[in-house]
Amino acid sequence: MEQSLIHQIGDQMYQALVNRTTIAPLTTTYPEITIEDAYQISLRMLENRLAAGEKIIGKKIGVTSKAVMNLLGVYQPDFGFMTDAMRFDGEMPISKTLIQPKAEGELAFILKKNLSGPGVTNADVLAATEAVVPCFEVVDSRIENWKIKIQDTVADNASCGLFTINESAAIDPRKLDLATVGMVVEKNGRVISTGAGAAALASPVNCVAWLANTLGKFGITLNAGDVILSGSLVPLEPVVPGDVMTVRVGGVGNCTINFS
C-alpha cells in the first residue's frame, strides 16, 4: 500500500473510534492488504490518538488462544498499544465509548525494566516483571459485526477497547506458576468460564517475550512501568451496560468491573 493510502485508512479508523461507528472490513475493501500494511495503519491510528493528548501506558498481545486463531484462520498473534484513555478501574463507561464490546480475562504484567527485542527470552521477561495483576480487557472492533480477518484486527490496534487491572492484587512472579495459574470468570454472579495460563500461547510468559521480540523489529521497546496485557485465558464474552464481571485468578486475587 502507498503511504498516502495507509494514512487515509489510519485516519478513517481513528474517526470510527472517536465517533463510535463501524466500517466495512478492510480485507473486503482492500483485498490486497498485507499484515505489514495493517501494522502501518494501526501506527497511523495511534499517531492520531497521541496527537489528541493520549499517552501510551502499555502494550497488548492478541490472537493468543486456539479458539481465536481458529476463528481467524491465522496462527500467529498480533499486538496493539494501550493508552491512558483506555484504563478504567471500578466502572467502565462502555455505552459512551465502545461499539460492540467483549470482555476477556487476562493477566497483565507490570514491568520494572525495559525489554527490547530481538533476543528477549522468557527468563528476561520474568526478570523484568515487577508484578502480575488480574485484568479485564474489553475488546471492541471498528469493523462492522466483528467480521475481522487478521489484517482487519491488526489495523484496528488489535481490536483494542478499554482495560482494567487490580493493582492491589499484584503478585511477584516468583510466587506463581504462570502456565498453570487458574482463572474463573463470573458474569452477574454466575461462573461463565474457566481457564488457565497455558491458554495463551502455552504460557503468558511466552506472550510477553513474543511481544518484546516482535515490537523490537519495529524499533519499539516494552518500557519499565508499562502494563502488558498478555492475552485472554478464557472465551470472549459480549457485555452490555449493567453487567458486572469478576475475574478470579488462582493464588493472585480478583478484579471486578461494572459496565455502565
Binding site: T180, V181, G182, M183, V184, A196, G197, R248, G250, G251
Partner: peptide
C-alpha cells in the same frame, strides 16, 4: 491450602 475453585489445570 488453596482456593480449589481457582486452581488451574493444564
Amino acid at each position: 491450602d488453596f482456593d480449589w475453585s481457582t486452581l488451574g489445570v493444564v
